[in-house]
Design a protein around this nucleic acid. Structure first.
Lengths: 347, 347
DNA sequence: TACCGTGTTGCAACCGGTTACATGAAACCG
DNA sequence: CGGTTTCATGTAACCGGTTGCAACACGGTA
């Protein structure tokens, strides 16, 4: 006889085969209610024998839960994002939740996802990663039926919502103290443009953290030693070049990201300046390339931020808390080969 | 009166409010069947007014489709993986399918996912990325109810299954010809260990591609100029060091990945060799760091591989094809600053 | 006027689980 | 020994969509 197309085995088939009702079969399956051990074993044996796979769709429908959490992530391609995602996955893999991702690479898509996702019944919870919501979307987001946790979002508008953030002020401060400790006095900063379509604020906070750290030492950074521009390596290189051509030249530059720090290094090289002898450079993030290049930088706990975010989310799904839980992750200074005491003699 | 907890709006509510049957409401919602324009508009207006959101869970259950595709990805954190994932997402975002990811970082997890996923009713299709299935799992995988597409998997066992692969032989050949063209004759190779728990074969194919390209020029690479080891920067550095200490020293090294190429460069630097004057280095992948470092390399079409994989998968979901569709992506040589003609005089 | 075809719409079953409530049997009690 | 608990299980409704089939309205035709 020809092989028949296998019909999918339902719990009713199991029940019939085992000579019990579907209710009992369901109970045996979930181990929730009390089922007489003998019956349970028989049912489980039948399930195994028939190759029964409970349909998640049916389960979700009757439970009224999606058993799914969504991660809205911007620029998946950046190593930071992937690492954070890994952290989220690590938590979710051991849970009953599926992890669906929504990659955002345009403002339209951001608005679309942020506007609809939390209300559509597609997920039981949402992680929003490195993606500040537009201010006007926040009120809606804070009253959604499903909890939303922000990771690496620093806009004030989400201050009262569940989130995990790296402490950018502390990170900037770390950078400042490191340079101070090495003896630098003429310090410059290169970071993102002050307003971006996505409303990123990390760069600004890192800058503020550093200037605050320098102030007690009587050091201020003049506007001529500050460069703001679009986030990118080449933009940073151009900004750095301009700053490095001034006299007196700064002996150290703090870049708001490693990507930008690499641009600074490129500028220095082009100008014939030796790093770190003529110029110290410190970045932020500790991306993969930082290690290759030997870049001194501030490391964020990326994986951990994902883990914590997912944990908070699961807890919120379980029971919404009164007070929005907030996790702060402390950054860490990683000293490599691009920072050293200044050699004024050379100047 | 106190604000009542909003009950979710179902299609029956809509139907009642619009004075039609649920069937008609459903048809209006999906625009599939013919509904009198007037009725349709009225229904859609009501849906809008009530804030109706169709429940995906219910939809999936009654359609008997999960509207979900799974991506099994190994080492999400590697930039290649993220870039491929973006390609998949680009296709899926415009479809009705959700994208759920299964990150694999251990053999156990691989076996678990590969063993269960294709049969569980969790997805309508599966993309397996850079993750060769264990041979014994292949027969089962090729007869699953849901289609499976492999991306960047080169094991012979999946040869007859839908997949998209970069042509590693061609890539190795590109590298070989590039070095030949520059005038190199003493060429070494550094790649992965010949057997890995995951059964990766890319490194081997790249090696083979190069040796095949060199053969017509009468150049063979002796075993003393070949280093196989665990995939990693430091392992590659150690292997390179050993090779570079031999006499005569090779004038060029082809590394099976950029990561390993960076290790080679580190080894050269430690030995006081200048790249590219004393030693040319060429890698594979064109990861982000490659550009920073100025590494000459073979670029794979990562994003494109994800796109194509997703497209194939959707097509297979739509209708299984007789012949497994296979897409080959041709690699591309990217010349940067780590390769140059050999300067024998210096040796 | 009877008949028919086309175009819209409604009825009700169905997808495959979960679970409130009812039922029946066994155990326990005075 | 009748009555009350307790435990295990069954009955059937429910989750919220989709869809095969029947029914109905309406205009055209004989």
């Amino acid at each position: 006889m020809p092989p028949v197309a296998k019909k999918t085995v339902t719990i009713r088939d199991v029940a019939k085969q085992a000579g019990v009702s579907v209710a009992t079969a369901s109970r045996a399956l979930n181990g929730k209610q009390v089922v007489k051990p003998g019956t349970r074993d028989r049912i489980l044996a039948v399930m195994d024998e028939l190759g029964f796979r409970p349909s998640p769709a049916a389960r979700r429908l009757s439970l009224g839960r999606t058993l799914t959490v969504g991660v809205v992530v911007s620029f998946l391609t950046r190593p930071q994002a992937a690492e954070r995602l890994r952290g989220v996955d690590a938590v979710l893999a051991d849970s009953e939740f599926d992890l669906v991702i929504y990659n955002v690479e345009s403002v339209q898509k951001r608005d679309h996802y942020l506007g609809s996702l939390a209300h559509s019944q597609r997920t039981d919870g949402l992680v929003v990663m490195s993606l500040p919501p537009p201010d006007e979307a926040v009120p809606a987001l804070s009253q959604t039926p499903v909890p939303v946790v922000f990771i690496d979002v620093h806009t004030p508008s989400v201050a009262h919502m569940p989130r995990v953030v790296g402490d950018d002020l502390a990170g900037g401060s770390l950078a400042g103290h490191h340079l101070l400790g090495l003896g630098h006095r003429r310090i410059a900063f290169i970071g993102d443009a002050l307003e971006s379509p996505f409303g990123f604020t990390s760069s600004r906070d890192r800058e503020l953290g550093m200037t605050t750290a320098l102030a007690p030492a009587g050091i201020a950074i003049g506007p001529e030693s500050i460069g703001h521009g679009a986030h990118g390596r080449y933009e940073a290189r151009d900004l750095a070049r301009r700053i490095l051509l001034r006299d007196p030249r700064p002996t150290a530059i703090f870049a708001a990201s490693d990507t930008q720090a690499l641009g600074v290094i490129a500028a220095a090289r082009e100008l014939g300046l030796h790093v770190p002898d003529d110029l110290s450079v410190i970045g932020y993030d500790d991306i993969e390339a930082a290690e290759y290049v030997g870049l001194t930088t501030i490391r964020q706990q990326l994986f951990e931020s994902g883990r914590r975010g997912a944990e908070i989310l699961l807890a919120e799904i379980d029971r919404r808390s009164e007070e929005a839980p907030i996790a702060y992750l402390t950054p860490e200074l990683v000293v490599r080969a691009t920072t050293a005491p200044p050699k004024e003699g050379r100047g």
